[in-house]
Design a binder for these strands. Structure first.
Lengths: 194, 194, 194, 194
DNA sequence: AATGAATGAGTGTTCATTCAT
DNA sequence: GATGAATGAACACTCATTCAT
């Protein structure tokens, strides 16, 4: 296994700081102290704070997208696909709580910054892949008629809401405990009525 | 109609700045310029920036809670109650987009600050009122069995997700257009299977 | 006994604040809170902070001068006069530690301010009275030859040094315990050698 | 001869400002203007104003202590030691009036701040060295019986009082002129009566 | 690639003072 | 005489960023 590169060390340190202090309250010096890199090195690798945030964001979403991709390859029905959207989201949040918290809170910021277009492009792609995977089923009339953004909200909204609360420490119970239930509800919510 | 007090003017100005610049990027001077109050007056009334944020947050949630309360008084069935949770949330967001955006993004910050306990107390109360309104129906077995936090997430999660996207300008379509559909889905998601 | 006037209440409150916080760290609002007077009242009576400090200073030195005056009236020898300078100083410090501390630390400030001339005038007068009381003895050759400022320093310097340390809490022992010894040393230091 | 370091330049500039304006009235910008360093550099080296004050204080007292140390090495009698305490103090004040004024007025402030313990430790050490140098003579009964703090006050009090007045511009005559007389009086004041 | 001293515009906040009531 | 809301200049301090080594 390769040693983590300096860049990755910095990214990991930044994420830890963001988790503990919040993104705005984290200073470059905090990241320096935690990563062991010098200020000069930080700027050599990333150029500015915004780009550290952006790189972290993109790496996080890519990681999640990859996980989803793997699942889709094996899903053989509309139901499996929809449930996969829920379960893989929850599983990823549980496995990467810091990353999930950061992404959940920094989207607007990254979108507004210089890496905004890159982010939107990645999102478009991600969304398109999901739609493509579901396109066949939609044509078969498996799903209830609704706008794309509604569909996405209905499927992932409950999980995201629960994840937000859990990541903020407002839930005493485990997030994973609701995994199956939320997947089932998502499926029931979007399938065409029998 | 009474003229808005100096305190309210400051709060309104702060909200407008938060909407345009974001909370962190808003400086006290921006609020001063927009409100017409002097810096001294700002501090005379609120003491520090944190407390402006907190006051605005609490005022916003109170406003929404009041709206919900009014509706509950007239709701005569479990279905009406659940749908009301969705529709009154969406209606409030559409009617107060700036306030909604601010509240959606500042919860963690306020919770972490000196007014955190006041906020948690208000939330506890709000949540308790909703549960009380539904308690009777729950005992009758009207609802599918699930934890309280799951119930809340299933009912409001999709609306909140959609609202976030709409408030961030990521939706071209109107938020209100999904009103009935989301209410219906919420109800179907939590009712006991027939 | 007359009730203390509002002015005196303010002065007392100011002195207490100065003792606890230091003169610079004391704000008008602290004095307001402690005195019970309103900000407007404070400014009505004194005009500004500087004049509160000045009034307090002058009142304190006057009080000490009066005490000295009383003693001199009864002192019938050079030795008695010199020892009186020491003992009445120490007695006053022990009786009015807050006032003494304030005066010991604020002289330069008052001298530099608008009441500086009044202070210098009071000091000149005070000094002149002491010299007058000793003039006769000096002519008789009772004292060792030295400049006036040296004389004053030799007589009062040790007491003042000890008082400073005691007032700052750096001495565990009582200031009064050294009273007689310091008076004796002062006398031996200034008398002409036998 | 080495060029003064940036830190020393800042310290020198601060001392000059303190002399002209007083410590409280000196702003960071004044020190910046006088030292030529940037605000960032000031804070890079010292962290905050308090620490500039503390560093200056400690450097000044160290300088004086060193001077005293050198003298003690050559003093061969109780009389020489006592007189040295007086003369080296006066000589140092005359040679470093700004530093002396600053130290005379800032002790309480530094003691109350974060460097207070360092200062007290330095003082303890300084005091202990002096006592050690005199210990042998004390055992021989050379000195009049009195408490340590009295002894210190009697020896240095007159010089300090005179120095204060001279440094404040209240003395027209030279401080150095009293050097021998004060040393002599100090010795007479503490020696055991013949 | 790495370092860290230096930079300075910008921030939240303080507080003596004013003045209309 | 008394009140206290309003004022705004001034301050200590922060922190992303640069650049010579």
């Amino acid at each position: 296994m390769a040693r983590p590169s300096r860049k990755d060390e910095i990214l990991q340190a930044a994420l830890a700081c963001f988790t503990e202090q919040g993104v705005d309250a984290t200073t470059i010096e905090m990241i320096r102290d935690r990563s062991g890199a010098s200020i000069g090195s930080l700027y050599h690798h990333f150029g500015n704070k915004e780009r550290i945030i952006g790189a972290l964001y993109l790496a996080g979403t890519a990681q999640y997208a990859e996980r989803l991709e793997h699942g889709f390859a094996k899903a053989g029905s509309a139901e499996a696909c929809v449930k996969l959207l829920v379960t893989s989201y929850i599983d990823w949040v549980v496995a990467n709580p810091d990353w999930a918290r950061f992404i959940l809170h920094s989207r607007g910021r990254v979108e507004a910054g210089e890496m905004g277009e890159a982010l939107r492009e990645a999102n478009r792609l991600h969304f398109a892949r999901i739609l493509a995977a579901l396109a066949e089923y939609r044509q078969q009339g498996v799903f209830r008629a609704m706008a794309d953004n509604c569909f996405a909200a209905v499927v992932i909204g409950p999980s995201q809401d629960l994840a937000r609360n859990w990541l903020a420490g407002r839930s005493q119970s485990e997030l994973g405990a609701c995994r199956e239930l939320l997947a089932q509800i998502a499926w029931e919510s979007v399938r065409a009525n029998p």
